[in-house]
Nucleic acid binder design. Structure first.
Lengths: 333, 333
DNA sequence: GATTTAATTGAAAACGTTTTCAGATTGCCG
DNA sequence: CGGCAATCTGAAAACGTTTTCAATTAAATC
């Protein structure tokens, strides 16, 4: 009673050719006489034959599927990257298996392994804290892996990012130039290299160039959530900060709303610059000034890079830096 | 030079048992003597054997992978659903292949077919305008499909939603009770059943109960984007609307900001209620009152339903309605 | 200890493709 | 029209599992 699945063999019989020939026309192999090609194509049409990608994957050792590991799709930043990834994946005939890791190292390792067991042709990984254990798992496989919008200081994985230190440095400099003596640095977990090594470095460099002493009371390590942001106003006031460089848009939105709710005027009394330029920056009032990152493109370029790696094509630059920008909106003077 | 992949056969040899036995222990089959189980397990450990899911899929005709078709992950509404889906998928040992359709019917059909060719065990579909063509494709396959947060008036696919007509009716009634004689209905494309058939119906019913004549000048069909929302203020004022029931959060945020930018006070001069209760509602000022939908749960329940369908378990209710709520925030009086 | 029954195991056939290699056909040239 | 190269085609062996069925071994019964 089962709906009969029709196989390449059925087509071969019906068209009175061999499986090999059918396989050839399905795969667009040139070595088949136009007449036979037509004959086979007709039978395929008539029988409504659809190749079984699993069998194909087993025989060819390619699944045209790539794994995508992301902390949380629900976060606009990652959703944008994911969209870029999917679009160019589609363009190159790949599909993506998307998994949320919650930035949990154990979970990351686990899903990495299930992705590998599913024989994905490549993986794009997002998440900035790469534990030694995870790094080892990365090394163990020869399936290509690229980091998207994520940095690993210690590893040597291909990656695509922007120049976080330069971007932060530039924005903090602007803040200082506008007269802010005490600018806070509000970031996600510092053990993530992107924060602890790069952005913080940019912050420090800007301070140094301006001859301002680094004060660790001004750096606030958070969990990157909106909620946390809303709670930060008192602490920020307590250290006499008059501006903040924030590393996440939702977090920044939280801070800004916390300020507004406490009747601190943004930007008059407190300036805020955020980092990801998700569409949230425009939706909030005042609109948030931001470092602009080509989010979609970071995803897109990552995936493009991955396709090259999967095909053993030469890549000129393993660690791509895309251009960033500075978007002045209403949360800065 | 290729990294040798080790197969079930290698561990069989090494453990001096048959492949069948190895397969049994890998799959937790009870019929194997504890001693042999241990022996095999040890060899697996020693050789670092990982089962090849593709081969397994071919032999067993199950891939433990489900397809997820979504208009755009970058939209918070769908991202939330997707997250719910992935979480329960993981819980039941499935992975998801995530594809963006842009609500484009051709694209939907195309990805549906590639998902099927990849032999997914099931599909959860999001997107409200289901063309006749797509409906036919749905019918052609015996792979189970469930609609998540999406309705198809004409088809008979399993689905999980909330009671959109009741929810809208209730909110519009509240608006009217508070003295609004002219409440606008701002929605996405009306040819999507969720808008054209359900929500609009709730709107009309509320009007009718209140003895107010339906005026189609008050219904605004849009494309559901933030940008469009920001442009709507003049038109809304032109028809003397004093409140709006909006079917999408980003759209609503746009409208609200458009109002604010034109110095129309929300909620004093214009009340706004939105529909999806994404976290955006809290981030915007004033915070938006909303119909609350258990977004994550809609995804989660869809996936759970799908697991039952995939296992041929009986399901009590093919079309699940989850409870909705009404969240009063600051965009209404 | 001989049977009978239950618990373990293994051999081999799927699963639906791709791919290699050799054989068959065709086209072209003098 | 013979011969050689170029073009097409097919047989059969992978690919790495699961699963069926029969055979073997162990346990239980009297």
């Amino acid at each position: 009673m089962d709906k009969q699945t029709i196989t390449i063999y059925d087509v071969a019989r019906e068209a009175s050719v061999s499986m090999a020939t059918v396989s050839r026309v399905v795969n667009g192999n040139a070595n088949v006489k136009p007449a036979t090609r037509k004959k086979v194509l007709d039978v395929i049409e008539k029988l409504d034959y659809r190749p079984n990608a699993v069998a194909r994957g087993l025989a060819s050792k390619k699944t045209t599927t790539v794994g995508v590991i992301v902390p949380d799709v629900t976060n606009m930043y990652f959703a944008s990257l994911a969209r870029g990834i999917d679009d160019v994946a589609t363009m190159y005939k790949y599909n993506i298996i998307l998994t949320n890791s919650d930035s949990n190292s154990e979970k990351e390792i686990k899903v990495l392994n299930t992705l590998l067991s599913k024989q994905v042709d490549g993986i794009v990984f997002m998440g900035n804290e790469i534990t030694e254990k995870l790094r080892e798992e990365f090394k163990r496989t020869k399936t290509p892996i690229v980091l998207a919008g994520s940095v690993d200081d210690a590893g040597d994985n291909p990656s695509v990012n922007i120049d976080y230190v330069a971007a932060v440095q530039e924005e903090v400099k602007n803040l200082i130039d506008r007269g802010n003596k005490r600018v806070a640095f509000v970031c996600g977990p510092l053990d993530q290299a992107i924060n602890g090594k790069y952005r913080l470095k940019g912050y420090k460099q800007a301070l140094k160039s301006a001859g301002i002493a680094y004060d660790d009371k001004l750096v606030f390590e958070t969990d990157d959530t909106y909620k946390t942001g809303t709670l930060l106003q008192p602490a920020l006031m307590a250290v006499n900060a008059t501006a903040a460089m924030v590393t996440d848009d939702e977090l920044a939105a939280g801070i800004m709303n916390g300020m507004s709710d406490a009747d601190v005027k943004v930007p008059e009394q407190f300036e805020i610059i955020t980092s990801n330029d998700t569409k949230l920056t425009e939706m909030v009032r005042p609109k948030m000034s931001s470092i602009t990152q080509p989010l979609y493109d970071i995803g897109a370029v990552s995936m493009r890079l991955l396709t090259k790696l999967m095909n053993n094509e030469p890549v000129d630059e393993k660690n791509v830096l895309l251009p960033y920008g500075l978007m002045k909106r209403e949360s800065t003077k």
